[in-house]
């Protein structure tokens, strides 16, 4: 099956290359189609020093179809659904191509944390704060949720 074959390659590449200090990826021991990721909140954002867990599900038509990625850690961000953790990101939908991979998709999510897109909000409250130019409200609220939800996991090996 092509999906497992490709994912095993991605895993080999991850094991061979230098560890990414901001992304930790591990496949389910029973099912290579399911992965878990830890993301380190980017510095100089309200997510700084938080550790966020994602769940990643690939279908049998991966990598032709994008993986489905959700935040398991609650996060306040215009492009992340506050309740379900769904992420609104073009490369996980219409702009996906097999040239991406799981690690690249996680990198795009990290970039989204640093650079929210208030014009396609899944979390309207966060979107409205940014569109209304109330960055103080957005930064404080996002920071509060980071402190309340994202300070409990430890980075593997630290």
């Amino acid at each position: 099956m092509q999906a497992s074959k490709r994912l095993r390659k991605e895993l080999q590449n991850l094991e061979r290359n230098k560890k990414d200090p901001y992304i930790y990826l591990i496949p389910d021991s029973e099912n290579i189609l399911k992965w878990s990721a830890l993301l380190r909140g980017p510095s100089e954002t309200p997510y700084e020093s938080g550790i966020f867990q994602l769940s990643i599900d690939c279908s049998n038509d991966y990598p032709l179809a994008p993986p489905s990625i959700q935040f398991m850690t609650r996060v306040f961000h215009p492009n992340v659904h506050f309740r379900t953790g769904d992420v609104c990101l073009d490369i996980l939908k219409k702009e996906w191509s097999p040239a991406w991979g799981i690690q690249a998709a996680c990198r795009a999510i990290l970039a989204l944390l640093s650079d929210p897109d208030a014009d396609s909000p899944l979390n309207c409250d966060a979107g409205n704060m940014i569109r209304g130019n109330d960055m103080m409200a957005y930064n404080c609220t996002a920071r509060m949720y980071t402190v309340e939800n994202a300070m409990f996991l430890t980075w593997p090996g630290e």
Partner: peptide
């Protein structure tokens, strides 16, 4: 500029 991993099954 494509990664070998990205293209090889195709």
């Amino acid at each position: 500029g494509y990664d070998e991993m990205a293209i090889d099954i195709f």
